[in-house]
Write a protein that binds this DNA or RNA. Structure first.
Lengths: 234, 234
DNA sequence: GACTACGTTAAACATCTGTTTTAAACTTTT
DNA sequence: AAAAGTTTAAAACAGATGTTTAACGTAGTC
């Protein structure tokens, strides 16, 4: 214990190189699609060092997640957006557009957290709990709060939850089923312009229901609490 | 060539056993998540026989797809539904409910085609083209025709396409992200009752926009053709 | 200056997976 | 019944991947 930081410079260098390479590789291929050998090759480091420094592949992956998920710059965009004092509907529009942007983002730099999440969604690892609890759940709650405002319901109401899923489902669809979409709708190349069109559509599509619901139930407001499926869940 | 059907009984027996086992295994784990050994074990057949009868794993998979995709009983439900002379909105409701049912279906018997499609969506194989062209595209076109009726647009209009994607995205979301949903919304156990609730919500959510669009553009009707992204694509 | 602790390296290990080989068993033909 | 062709079986092969080993070198320490 007293011998904490000795060759720390070199050690941290290796650890850091591995973490950075692992982040890059994992965002590209997800946990299952990535190999230790590829990570070490990119880090210019011996294969055995993953096991020496992190134990095994899963712990390296977990460490990458730990770093990425709590990196404030990764989440900033969303929380900043939701904290703004704008019309809820406008915030929702921007939220959808931002999510779309992050989802379609490749390589460029930073903000690749969403790529990790997408891979985790598509093929969960034992780290799914961490990803959901630390990254997805908070965002999801903020989205529900926003929707709750528009709907005039509790954030924990089943309807609010269903609407949140409807919106998220629409957006992620374009990321996860890109190969199929490319074949089904070849003209959709997902240029920035087309991405805006899609994001705009999803906002329109969703707001139609949200508005209609609000005006239909404008008399009830807070009367209606969480119904049907039970109490809230964090 | 003239020696077509000789030991056909035994041969076809093995082929058939393999195909049936492969279908079961592939629907559970998809192409990548399934192994030849598991398939042969279930078929009570030697490992080498996959390569003897089908060449390799991919050809076995392709053969399974070929059978499944053109099996009329698999598609019947949808085409029957869409052919009915009911109110378009009602058909859409049923369509969503049916899709939801098929997506959540596990094991029981038959109608497992959707499971194969879902796996193919999540992690495409070289057979993706076949799956899209023979199975997804026709269904998708029928859905677009239906939406076109409600919207008062061409089935090839960008808006129609976007709406189709919105609906499909919402539904598939519940299948592909089940592990996350389970953690995000533990009360949603996807019992038959809850599945109805979800399907019903998706229909309401979607129809809100479709109706609004129709009444908003009720003056234009067929004036508006395929805009923006170009001509249709089959 | 020998000793110890730590980081690194090359190589091997263990396992899993698709595929192939070789010979035996079986069926059909002559 | 013998020959020829076809199907099956056991085993091995080849490649990839996560993991471990054992030797090596370089500090810092007594």
């Amino acid at each position: 214990m007293a011998s904490g930081a000795r060759q720390s410079a070199a050690v941290d260098e290796t650890r850091s190189k591995l973490l950075r390479a692992a982040f890059a590789v994992f965002t590209e291929g997800g946990y299952h699609g990535s190999t230790i050998r590829e990570i070490c090759k990119r880090a210019n480091v011996n294969i055995a060092l993953v096991n020496y420094h992190f134990g095994d592949k899963l712990e390296l992956y977990t460490e990458v997640l730990r770093y990425t998920m709590k990196d404030p710059t990764q989440i900033r965009g969303f929380t900043d957006l939701l904290a703004q004092d704008l019309e809820p509907e406008l915030i929702l529009r921007q939220f959808i557009r931002l999510m779309m942007n992050r989802i379609m983002q490749r390589r460029e730099q930073g903000h690749l957290q969403m790529q990790l999440i997408l891979h985790e969604l598509a093929r969960p690892t034992p780290a799914i709990a961490r990803v959901v609890d630390e990254s997805i759940k908070p965002l999801h709650q903020q989205l529900r709060s926003l929707l709750a405002q528009i709907l005039g319901l509790s954030p924990d109401d089943d309807k609010t939850r269903l609407c949140a899923q409807s919106i998220v489902g629409q957006v992620i669809h374009y990321a996860h089923h890109a190969p199929v979409l490319a074949r089904l709708w070849p003209e959709l190349k997902m240029t920035p312009t087309q991405m805006d069109m899609v994001a705009s559509h999803i906002a329109d599509f969703s707001l139609a229901y949200l508005r209609a619901f609000r005006s239909e139930h404008s008399g009830e407001r807070v009367e209606r609490k969480e119904k049907k499926s039970g109490r809230s869940s964090g």
